[in-house]
Design a protein around this nucleic acid. Structure first.
Length: 105
DNA sequence: CGTCTGACGTGGT
DNA sequence: TACCACGCCAGAC
């Protein structure tokens, strides 16, 4: 049983290119259904240190939730480059690109 | 220890 | 459909 934080990090690293996952989804996969906020904290503190594909994590509406305009623009660009389709300027098509955890279990 | 915070989720209006 | 209030819980101080 690894620490919740480490599990979250591993899960995020498993998200394939061209797909995205929601904060709550990652939290559930890590064993903490209510831990979406913790996923946020982890991205803040570990996205750089652990080389996480943080741009593949969005909120449940498929929107880029990050507040920093520079970082959100970067996320948008990376997702488009990976072939993710967008419903709007800030929301991905979750229905078509949401990461399927079945492949991981 | 107690308190605050946050790139969220859910349910009610 | 959109917005608001509240719950959640690990980490920073």
């Amino acid at each position: 049983m690894k620490a919740f934080t480490e599990r979250v990090i591993e899960i995020i690293q498993k998200i394939p290119e061209g797909e995205v996952a929601t904060y709550g989804q990652v939290a559930r996969m890590a064993g903490s259904p209510r831990g979406a906020r913790q996923v946020v904290r982890i991205l803040h503190s570990c996205s750089d240190k652990y080389d996480l594909p943080w741009h593949r994590v969005v909120n449940k509406k498929g929107e880029i939730a990050i507040q920093d305009p520079l970082a959100s623009a970067s996320q948008l660009k990376k997702l488009k480059e990976e072939g993710v389709s967008f419903l709007s300027d800030k929301a991905v098509n979750l229905n078509a690109h949401q990461f399927d955890p079945l492949q991981d279990f």
